[in-house]
Design a protein around this nucleic acid. Structure first.
Lengths: 348, 348
DNA sequence: TTGAAAGCGTTACCAA
DNA sequence: TTGGTAACGCTTTCAA
């Protein structure tokens, strides 16, 4: 029914082994023979059987990408960056790897489930993006899974989360704490003193690090604040909106708000608009990340640019072995933060 | 090195066949035996070999999802909806299917390449999302590929694009023309007469249908327009911005702009802001789609809601055979359009 | 440079 | 209900 390697071999008058070699291009084959084989492949409209190939070679051309929320443009960009970088060895047409995007929704269980599923697929590599959950038990479980994956030959890349000990996983960490410091310093320099903070979900490395940076900047400037001015929630627009409304009710003298990420910042803008406040005249909004849609669509946004897309791309490259993994398997991206935007000084 | 089915069988004192049956749960096995097997699986930390399984069963648990741009929230939502619906038969934990998200970037070649790659993987299903490219040669090539995929047992779902003849692909078409009519009627009812239109890329079904609807609504109201008021471009923010600037320079008396989708609408808003115009007081912006971030972040946006996420979810279900395919394999979603938002009448 | 043949780990059919 | 055992289609030594 379906065309197999053997069929191609028969038509090209060579052995299956030769056809395999031509197709994989990793073995010397006489030019004339190659032509003959390629011709047969074309005539029979042959398509390699991936599973069979993966079974025999003990590795597949699938690359898993774990994201918290694929509907969030942030992760979409990450996924896209990874996808564009995972061309396989040789880089010939059709020899590309396939990205398996796994939506964990921030759930620890699903994270583990997907890791198992990818292990089952004998994935060539797995890229975990976004902040890690800070639960000792879960961290240990993930570490175990990653170790097992690595043992089975799967390259592991952590993008935007801290390295995992005892693993040869490549870690691309972002300087979230430094970003938090810089963002808040920026607002302080403009004269803001009452600053609300819409933080991400609790028990997340990104949330904690960014908040730490925020507090450090305030302390450094001798500005006192209170826990009242911090509200936690998921990285979505609804949270930004509700949290901002809550902050306004708690402290009507706020002049600025820091949002955990761009999506949250958009929600914050919506809440301010609904409250009849103008941005940035009445309240300035500053957000992390640098998503394309926020940059000029919401010019009031101060953006701390964490070069995530580029980093993801680089992570993909590292994962694919086209670049040596840095010593220790850890590579911290930092010092590349950019503060910009059009936040304004608080009204006199 | 790695644990195999045979190892589990040995430890549980049963045959490999029995272990396979327990794992697949699609065959009667004595409760006691099942327990024993499950225990062995757990103790050995066994993970099924996907490729081997796929080879033997002649089908994999991968589902391909083709999108134009995964960084666009629109497609992120589609991908997410599909992902959440593709639980395999039985629906047991760990028995889930994996979504392979393929970023075509709107390129015909990549579309075909990915289709081939998915064919190679013996994907269980393939979901093509977004408008189709209107090039005869390419359409024929895609149709051929889809036919071949179907022959190999892959379920094919078209989501947001027209059905493909001579294929048993399930098509979920959106009423783009109807949406276009409704959107423009809404603006006309508000009193707008000079309306700019930022269209999507040319040679795309969605672009053409939406624009046709727009023109039909104008004609129906006896409003004359000109090609000057239509600018084409990719579905991105930059296009919305540049196109809007262009439209303003061509016709300074515009009072409303229709954007091809939400992303483009955000860009249009940015351009208006840069031009010193207010939304919707000076110029109203109306966009297609209903992305979460636009609804309240840009309250000036009139939204024509094409229930895409739901449709994708439904498509996923159909694809998985949990729901009978409609007669003829075609299902047109229509009559569910909702016009809402806060566009305003033009200034007197 | 090419061929022959032994796996790779499951599934599914046929018996028992 | 369970076991034995051919496939499944490819890769990869080992020889020639």
């Amino acid at each position: 029914m379906t065309v197999t390697l053997a069929d191609v071999a028969a038509r090209a008058q060579v052995s299956p082994a030769t056809v395999s070699r031509v197709l994989n291009g990793n073995y010397p084959v006489a030019a004339a023979t190659r032509e003959r084989v390629l011709k047969a492949v074309d005539e029979l409209d042959y398509v390699l059987n991936g599973p069979a190939s993966a079974l025999a070679a003990a590795t597949s051309d699938l690359v898993g990408v774990l994201v918290n929320d694929i509907a969030d443009p942030f992760f979409g960009i990450m996924a896209s960056a990874v996808q564009s970088e995972i061309v396989g060895p040789g880089g010939r047409a059709g020899g590309e790897r396939l990205a398996v995007v796994c939506n964990t929704g921030g759930s620890p269980e699903r994270e583990l489930t997907y890791l198992t599923l990818l292990q089952r697929q004998r994935a060539a590599a797995v890229v975990l993006t976004g902040g890690a959950i800070e639960d000792a038990e879960h961290v240990a479980a993930v570490a175990g899974k990653l170790r097992r994956l690595a043992e089975a030959g799967t390259r592991v890349v952590l993008c935007g989360r801290p390295p995992v000990p005892d693993t040869d996983a490549v870690a691309l960490a972002f300087d979230n704490r430094g970003g938090g410091v810089e963002l808040t310093r920026h607002l302080l320099a403009l004269g803001h003193r009452r600053i609300g903070y819409v933080a991400g979900p609790e028990e997340r490395t990104t949330t904690r690090h960014r908040l730490e940076g925020h507090r450090a900047a305030l302390a450094e400037a001798g500005v006192t604040t209170s826990d009242d001015l911090v509200v936690h929630g998921p990285y979505d627009r609804a949270t930004g909106r509700a949290a901002t409304a809550e902050l306004l009710s708690r402290a009507s003298d706020l002049t600025a708000i820091v949002a955990a990420n761009d999506t949250v910042a958009l929600g914050a803008c919506a809440a301010l608009r609904e409250a009849g406040l103008r941005i940035p005249q009445d309240v300035s909004v500053a957000g992390f990340d640098d998503l394309p849609f926020s940059a000029d669509a919401v010019p009031a946004l101060t953006t701390v640019r964490l070069p995530l897309a580029e980093a993801a791309a680089r992570a993909g490259r590292i994962a694919m072995g086209r670049e040596a993994a840095p010593a220790g398997g850890v590579d911290v991206v930092s010092g590349e933060l950019v503060v910009r935007g059009s936040t304004a000084a608080p009204r006199a």
